[in-house]
Amino acid sequence: MRTYLTRRILQLIPVIIGATLIAFFILSLVSDPFAAMIENPKIKLADIVRLKHQWGFDLPIYLRFFKWFGSVVVGNWGPSLLYPGYSAREVIFRALPITLQVMSLEFIFSILLSIPLGAISALKQYSKTDYSLTLFSFFGMSMPTFWFGLMMMIVFSVWLKRPSGVPLLPPGGIQTPGMESAAFLPRMLDRGQYLIMPVIVLSLFSVGGWVRYMRSFMLEVLHQDYLRTARAKGLTERTVIYKHAFRNALIPIITLIALSFPGIVSGAAITEYVFNIPGMGRLVLSAELKNDFPTAMIALTLSTILVVIANLAADVVYSIVDPRIRYS
């Protein structure tokens, strides 16, 4: 197991470097972070030249990548241009926990919802429940995330109001002003209000797809010979389904969930944008908008690493669930 893990991790390093390289080249096409500076009368030309040298902008692009990569590895992530006076590291570590919070909530919520719903849909194939769940999952898969966010906002922040006249759910942001120093519980409750809509919006897409796939994996398993064997043994239907069918249907869903991870990160970006959540996704988009090259690059790299780690985790879970996987 340990050697297997080590080997997998070693395999992932070139993937991370390759992905970073691609991101670097694309972003290099976009941003000339100095164009804005030159126009800014407060910044001296000498400083710009110094910065250009510091970041390797006086070098050809492939050398610049190595210079950048070298300094990132040693922890020098450069300044943030989006928030002058802060380093990219500070900006990112303020945004990262928020995104992780949103994404882990969405992840747990989606898995807990879609796996049982997909299984039920398969077990009751062609029933009313199955048809409604199918309709629901197509609804989820076809809904553009950002538009669904806007719709939710219209319903819960514009139409539905509390008796006091305040929107039922806040239309954006992450915290009511003044709640920063509140006690833990009220602060979490406050945070919860802000996260309900984004998490639902973000989950809808994954849940839709996963329910559909879980249903078809489960249907596939239900027609396997070993289920007939299990029934011929005289096992209860409960054992047949929960012990024999369910576990086998989970194997392909693990791969599927791992594959959809980059999509979740992308979805999180646009959801954060719509709901004005100061997370990584919004940070990347704003950094790109403002040509904040260092911040955008680091944020993209971290997102990629996140995806790669998620894939690794999926591999490990997979090898636990499926005994046919050998570590050799």
Partner: peptide, 22 residues
Amino acid sequence: MRLVDIMLSIPTFPLLIALASV
């Protein structure tokens, strides 16, 4: 296929935006 692996691990949306702006 390595290239495919790599491109599938990047969260494409932010890069899509970047490329579109270029």
